[in-house]
Design a protein around this nucleic acid. Structure first.
Lengths: 162, 162
DNA sequence: GTCAGTGCAAACTTTTTGCAACTAC
DNA sequence: GTAGTTGCAAAAAGTTTGCACTGAC
């Protein structure tokens, strides 16, 4: 499915959702949905706010962004992450499931896919708990920071020898 | 390892850590460490604050709690979670790895263990990324909320039929 | 004695809320 | 017309910071 038809489809899904829940179809809501689905990867409310104003020329208040995001999460069109201080969100319709590598030193977040792992997680027996989605965050050092640390350690050892 | 020896051991580890990093061994730091290791499961800063005052009769400022938690995380004695608004922390020395079921409706967090799953995750090939730990959060409906929803749905259907 | 650590309060950041104005239905 | 939405500003909640005082070394 190409990006254009995804954007059309999610618009339909959201329309259905709004109707089913007795919510109104406001221009703000669809502009927000469309902006989110034009993005790749994660974003926070502030980024979305700026982006809508600058790129899309559409002014919405932060309050509306927060309100709409709740609806989008409920409609299973957006999921929420909590990596750092500010919540991060991402579109989730027709998007490959992926996992996250988070560097504890520089904070960089990398996505990766692993179908086997995905299968293992999705088929875990959970008793009466009815899972809708999951997040796997793997913390550690990215190759860059690992290299930086090794260099620092070497320098320290050299200094001590002097 | 029983609880008492765990508490002794982490105290030693923390002492080593502080020495190695040129930090001072203050009573606050050890009181905080000990309180955390007397707890089971998750806690947030506010809970810890209240608990130390009421149960341990030890007054520390929130600022010190935040400062100390950073050190404890760096010493690999505490890990941080971000389920909701406030950060949640938990001790991690000598604690079984576990996964989290989070109810998207009532917010209840349940832990569960699954060694096979744990093994699969820990042995995933990650290229040059050096993983130290991970968090798996599975979102969905707990059995209680599922039941509540079904009841609501039934009531709604009945009302419509009238 | 010195400087890292602490407590306090103020500042800051992110998110929520109350309310008047607006608009989708 | 009316009730759901929006924008704004104020409030709330969580965390960080600046500064004077304290105490570990």
């Amino acid at each position: 499915m190409d990006n254009k038809s995804v954007r059309e489809t999610v618009k339909q899904i959201f329309t259905e959702y709004l109707k089913a829940h007795g919510h109104r179809k406001t221009p703000e809501r669809f502009a927000i949905l469309d902006t989110i689905y034009s993005l790749d990867g994660h974003f926070d409310i502030d980024t979305l706010y700026t982006l809508m104003e600058e790129k899309e020329n559409f002014r919405v208040s932060r309050a509306t962004l927060y309100n709409t995001i709740v609806l989008l999460m409920d409609a299973n069109l957006v999921i929420k992450h909590q990596f750092g201080a500010a919540s991060q969100y991402e579109k989730c319709y027709n998007r490959e499931t992926h996992h996250h590598l988070i560097c504890t030193q520089c904070g960089k977040v990398t996505e990766f896919q692993n179908e086997e792992l995905q299968h293992d997680i999705e088929h875990t027996r959970l008793g009466r708990f009815n899972m809708s989605h999951y997040s796997l965050y793997m913390y550690g050092l990215c190759s860059k920071c690992e290299r930086v640390n090794k260099r620092k350690l070497n320098n320290k050892l050299l200094t001590n020898k002097k």
